[in-house]
Design a protein around this nucleic acid. Structure first.
Length: 309
DNA sequence: CTCCAGGGATCAG
DNA sequence: CTGATCCATGGA
């Protein structure tokens, strides 16, 4: 075989995976056809049945990168089987998002993306990410830009992030960039750490709480043993595992660990997708479910602009 | 127009 | 440790 421009990926859904809220730099052209960006790369793909087609010429190296990015070599069928066998709720919820894979995204880009994601909509998150790329990244194609490196963002001020639309998250982005550039947060170190330790390290960044840290661990560092718990997941878990009664974050995470074990990151995606599909994007909630908010008291640190290294 | 978003920091009890 | 409020913006 000469060019690797076609991959057989039984059970994989390009649309479900891309649109499950894991990544923010992509464009849908038409049904089943997407351009996806990661770091300084882009690829345009189409799904035809069980096959994924690369619509542009790609080197073997590029193809290998995306193969890893989309996690095509993992046996999801086996994992789904295990989750379904162990838990009846999983057996019910998995079919909705059965084709979802957990992406292996670039660490820094994932960190920035999920800081931006807080209290925000996907379309706007995408816009902010794109503007960051346009203003600080490099042009890697016609009107297409790479996600900037930490060094390329090192001089961006809070005010400038605000101009790019980041809003109150601008301060958080500056803090994140600073901690990465200064070496206070190093990807290689995080990869060496136990998950709990890596999570604590991430949470020293201002604007990174439990949920964002878990997302970075899951989507940017390949740690499946986390369970990012947002309002949707909380709602789903309470509904499906706590008889509709309120449960604390701790209780939810403990339940997730017990039910989904080392696969809770993936299980979380199934639950999220199921909840979104089933209840719609309009944010329907139980009739008299008042808005609840939670404070996750961070033990680890203030958020004053850091003065130095 | 107002409502709200795959949260988190901050300040009260 | 739990609860309430604010945060900036732009889709819907």
């Amino acid at each position: 075989m000469k060019e690797a421009n076609r991959f057989l990926c039984p059970g994989f859904s390009l649309a479900q995976t891309i649109e499950s809220g894991q990544c923010f730099r992509w464009k849908k052209w038409e049904e089943g056809r997407y351009t996806v960006l990661s770091g300084a790369r882009q690829v345009t793909l189409a799904q035809a049945g069980d096959s994924i087609l690369f619509l542009d010429e790609v080197s073997e190296g590029e193809a290998a990168y995306w193969r890893n990015y989309f996690d095509w070599d993992r046996d999801y069928e086996q994992i789904k089987k295990e989750l379904s066998a162990k838990d009846q709720v999983m057996a019910m919820t998995i079919p909705a998002g059965s084709g979802i894979h957990i992406l292996r995204q670039e660490f820094f880009e994932t960190l920035m993306g999920f800081i931006i994601s807080q209290n925000n909509h996907i379309p706007r998150i995408k816009g902010i990410m794109e503007r960051i790329c346009q203003s600080c990244g490099e042009e890697i194609g016609a009107g297409v830009y790479s996600f900037p490196t930490p060094e390329q963002l090192a001089t961006v001020t809070e005010e400038e992030f605000r101009w790019l639309g980041a809003g109150f998250r601008a301060r958080y982005l500056v803090d994140a960039v600073g901690k990465v550039v200064s070496g206070q947060i190093r990807e290689e170190d995080l990869r060496q750490m136990e998950t709990a330790e890596a999570k604590a390290a991430l949470m020293t960044i201002c604007g990174v709480g439990e949920k964002v840290a878990d997302c970075v661990l899951l989507f940017g560092l390949g740690r499946w043993e986390v369970f990012p718990t947002d309002v949707w997941i909380r709602r789903m878990m309470e509904q499906l595992y706590f008889r509709g009664k309120e449960a604390s974050l701790k209780e939810i995470q403990k339940k997730a660990e017990k039910k989904f074990g080392a696969y809770r990151g993936l299980a979380q995606q199934y639950l999220f997708y199921y909840g979104r599909e089933g209840q719609g994007h309009g944010g329907r909630r139980k009739a008299d479910d008042k808005d609840k908010r939670h404070a996750a008291a961070g033990s680890g640190g203030n958020c004053l602009p850091d003065s130095g290294i």
